[in-house]
Design a protein around this nucleic acid. Structure first.
Lengths: 184, 184
DNA sequence: GGGCTCATGTAAGTGGTTACATGATTAT
DNA sequence: ATAATCATGTAACCACTTACATGAGCCC
């Protein structure tokens, strides 16, 4: 009964209260997504597996509005979540960054194109940062003081800002370098 | 004939000269690995696919030492590589960070445990940073001035240093907070 | 002789995405 | 009326990892 990390995301979200698969996905999209994404195709089957394993319990929501199935943690599920949180290393870490990959191999590219690449990497991280900044008010309301979710959100913003800064610096250096080469 | 990103890693590595699958893997492990990893189980089948697609050409190495198959780029392969490098967005970006995930859900954990988690995240990033620092001399010799691979390596070091710094700050703040709570 | 590195590969499995199908309810 | 949102699900596919099998040549 070893679970995927995404299953723990589900358990974690359910600890905040009863949720449907749809709600879990919506929550993930405004919180863990930038360091742990999840799709419906992952969440719905995982919910069934977790239920079969006895870690969550689902029931058709009584309200006769729409067909929906709400899940909640069982004691076993709470335990499993706690055990995972307290477990030691290893901690799965993986980065896949096509921009850096291209940059790595960009030696053959003319400076203008490398500059364009750097710029589009920056723009993409700016987009994500802006998204995270938009989430901030919501998290600040939901979680009063400097809670873990807020701390992680702040990290996310700083993280993307760091990359943006590096891009800017590198763009500037490249521009200057190209200019001085042109002069000579 | 759309290729996986890892296939482009192979093409990129082959532009530097003839290489065996084994050599490509070794190169990846000391260069792109921290932002784009690749395993034998990915590389060998990809080499066959790329050859079938006419983007690379392989031949049994003449030297009668060991059984080995060296690959080189074909003109079509060079073109494909160049086209990928020059293509615009989107740029695949994905981060999977179990440490942040746990931290996000760590509200139920006692401060001491959250501190331990933070610490193990930091230690892990320190490990990776140290690895990258070890690669630096090799890259500096292979690539004279501030080349793309060196720039990306420097980014990698700064990247992990950034995360390490954030962990340290957060650990410190958490420690102080806990101490002041104990006093009151 | 034994262990290390070089070297090639594959089978099974994992963890995930994408795209689609379906349909009810709500807001405009 | 119609578009958006809520809601559940699955099939096909994808990229990738892990673990294993195999063997040659090299260094002590």
């Amino acid at each position: 009964m070893d679970l995927s990390k995404t299953a723990y995301v589900i358990l974690g979200m359910l600890r905040m209260g009863k949720r449907t698969g749809y709600e879990i996905k919506s929550l993930v999209d405004v919180s863990t997504r930038f360091f742990w994404a999840a799709s419906y195709g992952q969440i719905y089957p995982d919910l069934k597996r977790l239920e079969k394993a006895g870690l969550i319990r689902g029931e058709a929501a009584e309200t006769g509005e729409r067909r929906r199935r709400e899940y909640e943690l069982t004691p076993a599920g709470e335990e499993a979540l706690e055990a995972w949180l307290s477990a030691g290393p290893p901690l799965h870490f993986e980065l896949r960054h096509e921009g850096l990959l291209r940059l790595f191999f960009s030696g053959s590219l003319p400076a203008a194109e490398r500059l364009g690449l750097l710029r589009s990497i920056r723009v993409e991280h700016e987009r994500v940062r802006d998204e995270l900044v938009d989430f901030k008010p919501g998290v600040e309301v939901a979680e009063p003081d400097d809670s873990s979710p807020l701390a992680v959100l702040k990290f996310g913003i700083a993280y993307h800002e760091f990359i943006i800064g590096w891009c800017s610096d590198t763009e500037r250096r490249l521009t200057e370098q190209t200019a001085s080469e042109k002069r000579s």
